[in-house]
Design a protein around this nucleic acid. Sequence first.
DNA 1: AGCACGCCGACT
DNA 2: GTCGGCGTGCTC
Length: 828
Amino acid sequence: MDSKKLVAQVIVDNNSHQTDKLFDYLIPPHLINILKIGMRVLVPFGKGNKRLEAYLLNIAVIKEESLKLKEIITPLDYHSILSENQIKMVFWMRKKYMCKFIEAIHCIIPTGIVNKEKRILHLTKENWRNFIPHQQHKQMQIMMLLEEHGGSLSQDLINKTLPFKDCYQAIKSLEEEGYLDIEYQLSSRVNIKREQYVKLKKTIEEIDIVLNELNRAPKQVAMLEYLLKHREAKTTDITKTINTTNATIRALEAKGLITIFEKESKRNPFSTDEVELYPKLKATEEQENIIKEIVGDIIDNRSNNYLIHGITGSGKTEIYLQLMEVAKAEGKEGIILVPEISLTPQTVERFRGRFGEGIAVFHSNLSEGERYDEWRRISEGKVDMVIGARSAIFAPFNNLGLIIVDEEHEQTYKSEQNPKYHAIDIAFLRGMTEKAVVVLGSATPSIENYYKAQKGEIKLRTLEKRPQMAKLPEVEVIDMKEELDTGNTSILSNRLKSLIMENLEKKKQTILFLNRRGYSTFVSCRSCGHVVKCNHCDISMTFHMGTKSLNCHYCGLKISAPTSCPSCNSNRIKYFGAGTQKLERVIEGQFPGARVARLDLDVTGKKGAHERILADFKKGNKDILIGTQMISKGLDFPNVTLVGIISIDSTLNLPDFRASERSFQLITQVAGRAGRSLQAGRVVLQTYDPNHFSIVTASKHDFKGFYNEELEIRKEFAYPPFNNLIALNFSGGRDDELFQYVNKIADGIRYILQSKGYQSMNDMLLGPNAAIIPKINNKYRYQILLKDHGVELGTLKRLIRYFFIQHRQKYLPKGILAGIDINPYNLM
DNA sequence: AGCACGCCGACT
DNA sequence: GTCGGCGTGCTC
């Protein structure tokens, strides 16, 4: 006989570094033809053989000898829920982002589908008191508790209720001696919503006969006729349409003419709102050329990557729409990524307006149930298009043809949670393995992707014209230092003031951008210089007018606004800096009668508020819209002819190597809101640093100029795209304790690098430094940055793996958190 | 993550 | 002797 055996290699579903590896299980003979790679299975795990859910990632052949393996208990799926491509992706992600298998798996499968086991104990012997010895305290207490609760109780509850920790032994012996039964229950965390339906039980001919005899029951006739036409119907729908009650249904059922059955209902995330049709536009010559080329790739199954660099308002969305139309016609599926659904309502509306139903929408506001439903709709092939934020890149399509990443440069594509993946990395991977075309689009491409395009790794295509001859707006840079010198201490320059006035008179609309919410950005004492900071976060607090409080934008702490200095008690305390709230006040004071709206995180709390404000502005009910980042994306308002950027300096001066890039992008995107129709647009850009190259190039719409200068800097300082960066973030513990620890770790890394023969570590290891925000929520924060400059990225990753994964217990004290971020986008 | 084992001090 | 606390180490 064959001495080889099949083993299942599984990943158990618990979130621990120590169990983050493949475990081997025997496949019992009766399951050999049933188990498939990608299924979930139930396995006994650990000393107590606790039943754990696990993902079967591989089936391997081993020699019989050696092992005493446990057996798989049972499969949990009828079909694989992970495809082979998805399993490859799991391995790829773990390596690339240094995350756990299970973390990568949970990206691909929504949490809703995951089952959790419960153990229920059932009391089986009524007369247990006669047998259990009194000194067995634990056993007695467990049995008494069970009896109190009518004989059945979950083990969780027993553990919570009883004073001692480990009931394991006691329960085990009670079970062995037959006093209780352990029932294993798998309860799905998501309740699948079910709805009642009715359908005909007899053939059409039979019903016809009955219909002639039913002239005394018109409602029943109507219902049968309805069902003849529609085959089946929801009970609530059918009773409403023919204006009757459940009595009719029950009568027909009693006569054996119809059956009532239940069907899973899919919650509809856009239940009520109507979609406005968005008809196909005629492509310009520029657009047409790009479309033709990419369509060829889609039809021929060529996996190709494109970057479309199109100025704001050049009609990238129309290209996406027409490409998607082709993909759909070819029977392929498509993913459209947008930075954030709620910030790009217009893009979403256009897709829905063009394609109607058959689009799944993913966004962060979906409930777990809704997310699960959308996932199911996709995996069951009910939709062929998904539009959504970052996580939509994992949409479980099987015949993917096209991936579109709109506003490709946006930071939101990089996850801030584990695994800290970048959606564009995943897009390229899927494009390659699934033979799909990836199209990135932006008016301000990221340095990284533009560089790839220059090297020929991505095909670069440009759109330089706005349709209908609309022109890019003229940008005027105002030096606020000069304004100060001439005695204007207001946050509005004289030039901007007069242009707003002019615009109001001409009944044109204005957008004012300020990247700070709240009223005053910091509060400081003019006697002693004390700045009011959050007690938990070491961040200056922002004054909010509505609540008359100082808020911490990091932990959410609110304190009442002080009238005297908390440090020296002087009453010369003053509120500095301007946020959107203050700007709103200033504008209202300056232009009485102007209709002003504000859009920032503080006013969009309520569901739908965001859309309402924008719709109101679009209709022309407001003259001036004040907003933060939120207004920089995708808005297309033809009547806006003036955009004022109140200050860009806070972005420009962020201590982050991407600050220049972000500033350029922000200016360009915000400026792009002006002059989107035939009316010429104008942008006023206020700054204290008018000669900064980001500002100079952005004001001239000179992306290439910006790119070349920025690339030089990136090269000189060995930042991406030339080098990879790894951030090690530490938090927790006492300040001095943590400081000592991070130094020890940094020394350890240096020591190992040295022993490997590397001489100067200065280019490879930066820090440890206190993080840019040194304290959040009472947790101190430190950071070590690693660069693959003069050293292989793999070497650095192995080092990190050694310290923080393989020997985690040894090198990471309790109470200190360590996070690993490969190519971080947020260094704060 | 969980869980058991093993060692230790505190108590009947 | 027994109980419970806590540190350590393993899970196919």
